[in-house]
Amino acid sequence: MKLGKKVLIVDDAVFMRMKLKDILEKNGYEVADEAQNGREAVDKYQTTKPDLVTMDITMPDVDGIEALKGIRAFDGSAKVVMCSAMGQQEMVMEAIKAGAVDFIVKPFDTERVIKALDKALS
């Protein structure tokens, strides 16, 4: 089912993007594009129209929550999974309020990430 599902990875850290990309591609997802900040994310969401977005919360300039709102404004059915670190409870809750479908917590555990994405797309 998930084969060929397109994901847009949003994270300001190259390292994190690489890591996620690795995890996704090894598990049958296709990485549609990568964005390194919220502004790019909103922009690239519109051009690539991915099935799912992984959205880092803390990013310079436009952060993940703003970007989430932007994307949801453009597409009310957009599926955005937030990427958070420990200690970001409040922001995660805010993101959930704003319509995030799920969240994954860094450091990423392959199995959990894939489970979460599978769930989000089912």
């Binding site: 958070s84 420990m86 409870q89 995660v92 809750m93 959930i96 309020k97 969240f103 917590v105």
Partner: peptide
């Protein structure tokens, strides 16, 4: 499970 609080919150939402 990490961030149990938000996890519950998401389930309840």
């Amino acid at each position: 499970t990490l961030l149990k609080g938000p996890r519950v919150y998401l389930i309840m939402e």
